[in-house]
Design a protein around this nucleic acid. Structure first.
Lengths: 131, 131
DNA sequence: ACGGGATATCGACAGATGTCAATACGTGCG
DNA sequence: CGCACGTATTGACATCTGTCGATATCCCGT
């Protein structure tokens, strides 16, 4: 079990160098254990077919979507849909707006783009270059 | 358990409208069940702190990285690291290049950006606007 | 050919996850 | 008030997942 000399200048725990809002792009520098755990928490929130469908149903709509309209499209029980929506809210991807008895869900502005930016290997500046 | 009229014009199973390479951006239209399952499979590949660290270690390097150099940074056993790398390879994110006894891993060009593009709510054209 | 070392696979196991039925909670209407 | 209904929570359960030690596989130098 040897290592190449490359390992000598590898930061085992590169702490305190990521941006405050979340973390630097993956290609910039190796993630610290803490940063990786935090990023994984957010990625796990969208790592499920049902949650991706819920997200796209809401994202494709131009206004907040009532939960009652999300149950039939995904074809699962109401508690299960509620469970997935909760995970998306806790993951910072959705906003819940309870109007009386009804619960309306909408995208948190910038949440998906923030995840997208971390994954991108392109310069992050391109995201806002045109509009 | 009622539904608003909004549900009337919701595509329950919008099939056959996604691009061949993978799938349209989440904001474009609701994902079909099949497309969501396929996307989730790729997202799950990066939905783990260890795999994110491995990915960033490799992405931050400008050349392929020997597996022997990946064990110490993540602090896990060799079989576990091998397991995670296999998932990343099967997820289409890493390339494995076995040179004799050593295994070298490198990013699959465009794999991360493809994931990033699906998540982005911005126009995908921005990704290539400047280089 | 032999042996050592790098990597992959296997088996086992604890803990996380997705799902549902049952139930609790809360709001608005009659 | 009391009931109906939309939503959230709970409990249970099967499955998936991450981890390790042990072992198999494969290459290379001696």
């Amino acid at each position: 079990m040897r290592q190449t000399e490359f390992v000598a200048n590898l930061p085992i725990v590169s702490s305190g160098s990521m941006s405050a809002m979340c973390c630097a792009p993956l290609v910039r520098e190796p993630l610290s254990a803490a940063a990786a755990t935090e990023l994984a928490r957010r990625v796990k929130a969208i790592a499920d077919p049902t949650r991706l469908r819920l997200l796209s149903l809401i994202a494709a709509s131009d206004s907040a979507v009532c939960m009652c309209d999300l149950i039939a499209p995904v074809g699962l029980s109401q508690p299960t849909v509620s469970h997935h929506l909760k995970i998306l809210v806790e993951g910072g991807l959705l906003d819940r707006d309870k109007r009386g008895v009804w619960a309306y869900y909408s995208l948190v502005p910038g949440a998906l783009d923030s995840l997208s930016a971390v994954l991108s290997t392109q310069s992050a500046a391109a995201d806002f270059s045109n509009r």
